[in-house]
Simulated scan of single mutants.
Amino acid sequence: MSNTAVLEKLSSNRAFGGELAKYKFKSAALGGLDTNFNLFLPGKASGGNVPVLVYLAGLTCTEDNGAQKGSFLGPAAKEGIAILFPDTSPRGAGIPGEDDSWDFGTGAGFYINATKPEWSKHYNMRTHVLFELPQVLEAAGLPLDFKRQSIFGHSMGGHGALSLYLSSSKQYRSASAFAPISNPVNAPWGKKAFDGYLQGGSDEAREQYDSTELISKYKDTVHILVDYGTEDNFYKNGQLLPENFLKAARLAGFDEMQVRVREQEGYDHSYYFISTFGEDHIHFHANFLKA
């Protein structure tokens, strides 16, 4: 993966004594398309490289949703942690069917690498998040310490955070998720995405992209926090399946110190829910990022 991409700063806003900046670059992982991301740098960044927390947003979202509505920046500033907000998919690949539905294609990259030929040139969000963005940011000389990384996300992004954490050889120190698609091979959203992007469909996805399958075979220490709301309609209709993930984690021998799944009474799927527990998640990751 080339790390010679040139970053173009599109905007900058002062926030909580630090800076929230939007950048653009041509992404090799995404087939040469322009892609945007937001980066929050705390004020303490002037004192040396800071740890990085990656936030993956959900279906239909962009790099802006978490930055603007997650209530993450204040707590991250206090902890001296940077937050990286990637986009949720390539934009403008021009693939037939790319914009036909809200839960597949544009805004719905699912944080996987596509293997169907029509999608595989551009839809490589796994490579983009895991490798390309850290390389591009390091090459740009930004004050980030990618030896201290953690990851979190919401819904489709919660799926991405958990699956990348459990399949990426300790790249991240911890993972957390708000209302994640926890067992996507058994959820309508996951089946649609895997059947659309992957030549082997859900069978191909099990080994690398399904968090419930991954935790059941994981052999090392983990640090995972999951929150979901009891009034989340997507929980009620079987898209999220956090109980499957929790059961698999317990059967694999992970106790509540390693895998904590919290049912939040009365909360839904919205950013009101996320912003309520956002500070909890920042503090959770700070325990490991600053250790």
Rank of each mutant, 00 (worst) to 15 (best):
H159P: 09
K170F: 11
G157F: 03
L166S: 15
S211V: 03
G153T: 04
A177Y: 10
E207M: 04
Y172Q: 10
H159V: 07
I215L: 10
D232Q: 12
A193H: 02
A193V: 02
S202P: 03
G201P: 02
I181Q: 02
A177E: 12
N186M: 03
H159W: 05
A179Y: 06
A187P: 04
Y197L: 05
A175D: 11
A179G: 07
Q171E: 15
Y218K: 07
G196V: 00
L214Q: 08
N183H: 09
L198H: 02
S150G: 09
S216I: 06
F194E: 01
Y209P: 01
K191F: 02
P188H: 04
E204Q: 06
Q171W: 12
D195P: 09
P180Y: 01
S163E: 04
D203S: 13
P184A: 00
S176T: 11
D210F: 00
A175F: 06
D220G: 07
I181T: 08
G201Q: 02
K219G: 04
D232V: 13
K236R: 13
L225C: 04
N237K: 09
R148G: 10
S211Y: 03
F194M: 02
F194H: 02
Y209N: 03
L166V: 14
S174C: 05
G158D: 05
Q149C: 15
K236Q: 15
D195L: 08
F152S: 14
Y172C: 12
H154G: 11
K191G: 01
D232H: 12
K236E: 12
E213T: 13
N183K: 04
I215W: 04
V185L: 04
L214C: 13
G160M: 11
D210K: 00
K236V: 09
K192S: 02
W189A: 05
L162Q: 08
E213A: 14
Q171I: 14
R148K: 14
G201K: 01
W189P: 08
P188I: 05
H223Q: 14
H159I: 06
N233L: 11
K236I: 09
R206L: 09
S169K: 13
Q171V: 15
I215E: 11
S211P: 12
S169A: 15
G200E: 01
L225H: 04
T221F: 13
G200Q: 01
V226P: 09
A175Q: 07
K147Y: 08
Q199W: 03
M156A: 07
E231Y: 12
Q171S: 15
Y235H: 13
W189C: 05
Q199H: 04
S182I: 00
F152G: 12
A205D: 06
D227H: 11
S163N: 09
G157C: 09
G200W: 00
P180D: 06
T221K: 15
D227Y: 09
I181S: 03
Y218Q: 05
D227P: 02
S155H: 06
